[in-house]
Design a protein around this nucleic acid. Structure first.
Lengths: 257, 257
DNA sequence: CAGTGGTCTAGACCACCAT
DNA sequence: TGGTGGTCTAGACCACTGT
């Protein structure tokens, strides 16, 4: 005897309709009132069922409009290749990738000098609280909030690359700028985690309940020394990361493809 | 004038207490009744606030016990190295890793022969619906559900490696078994995504609302031919993945460390 | 047993969106 | 203006956990 609570019956029925295509991506879900009649439940019970589907990331709601089935178009991010310093680029790596996918990139940008958090200090191998330069991007694709990216540079690097701490954008990309100033990154360490967004992140990325974020932390090394730590927060419903791993010796991973 | 709804005020106050350590990991959150008095709200409003924190992954509830602040111990998974075929192992790679961390591994296991799903077929480069062998693991660490792993092998591989389709475990690990039968994997393609768990996944991994899963899909190639596709579903609150990426040519990624 | 959360109802008022 | 979801209340009964 499966004694399911009523709100689960509502959610299960709608979930089935979403999965079998009766409610395709983008479709409107029956209104709370309709569900009250159909399942003979109170409004709050119908809402509980809908809320469950929201927290599963299947639907979302907006006031005055109703509930809608999520449409998930995902963007693939190949993280295993180094930025190719020879390959022609149109601005930074992000803009290049988005444009080559036929989409329109947009980003806001700011620079701050501030004490490094514990996590960042550990990765940059500096004392916690030591000064670091933060370069922060808020990125959009076709005006949809896509990701935030915070890159921290240790203070000692600024004397060799002063533009890091200046407010303006670096058109050619900071990786190229650093390489031109003699700091070439030859090793990356990537960490990937997931969690629900903080309220701040939910605001910046315009995601509601039910959409997790992907946290991508990349530490770049020049020789044995870490020279930057980039924390990227990606909308989990729109992004997927790829890595190609090769067991062949003597092969560069830097070929354009 | 920030006109926050009451349930958000409740959630914000508790979130602050969690973040500043007044409510440390593992601590009991004040009961719904206490919150009703403290914030002068109805029980449902207090519950809404608590529900919000649950969906953010900060707390969880259980009947009769109360709400508890999540304690997050994370396990790091280094995915960038190949399984070392020479290095002595104690069973498969998972058991070896868990034991070497001083934890107790446990897994249940089953084998099925079934038509490949569209996603799997694409990665194995076989026709959708073609027969594939599924080897499925449900893995625990110290009796906590940790991950599920489904590995699919194309049917043509079974004639060279018949034990793949047999019910029993392969003690030395399937990668070694395949290598011993002449199929050495020399390239991996990894895809990493995140989303909220399906009800089935939530049951297997024993996660409630507010904990996303990390989906790790690894396709292994022998030459140009895909020989397996492994889909691992990891609890997002307990796992982090790492990749080391090296720009040096002529260096094996297969050294033990 | 007392205290906890889980489910459910009926009703109210408000804010937003389309027409 | 009517329909949608968002917030909030007061009260009821049930199921689970500890002592």
């Amino acid at each position: 005897m499966s004694k399911q609570p009523k709100y689960r019956l509502v959610a299960d029925a709608l979930r089935r309709e979403i999965e079998d295509g009766s409610l395709p991506p983008g479709a409107r879900v029956p209104s709370e009132n309709k569900l009250m009649e159909r399942f003979e439940v109170s409004r709050n019970t119908a809402r509980s069922g809908l809320h469950l589907l929201v927290s599963e990331g299947l639907i979302s709601s907006s006031q005055g409009l109703g509930y809608e089935v999520h449409a998930n178009e995902i963007f693939e991010l190949n993280a295993s290749r180094f930025e190719n310093l020879e390959f022609p680029q149109d601005g930074d790596a992000y803009s290049t990738d988005v444009k080559s996918a036929g989409r329109r990139p947009h980003q806001t940008f700011r620079v701050e000098v501030q004490p490094a958090s514990k996590d960042v200090a550990k990765r940059l191998e500096v004392e916690p609280g030591a000064t670091a330069v933060l370069r922060f991007c808020h990125r959009f694709v076709d005006d949809v909030p896509w990701s935030t990216q915070a890159t921290y540079y240790p203070e000692w690097l600024v004397s060799a690359a002063p533009r890091l701490a200046e407010p303006g954008d670096i058109e050619e990309g900071t990786t190229r700028y650093l390489a031109a100033r003699g700091t070439v990154q030859d090793r990356y360490f990537d960490e990937i985690a997931t969690r629900m967004p903080t309220p701040d992140e939910a605001r910046l990325l315009e995601v509601g309940a039910g959409v997790p974020v992907l946290l991508w932390t990349r530490t770049g090394y020049s020789g044995e020394r870490p020279v930057r730590c980039t924390v990227t927060t990606l909308r989990g419903d729109l992004n997927r990361m790829n890595y190609e791993i090769d067991n062949l010796s003597g092969r560069s991973e830097n070929e354009p493809k």
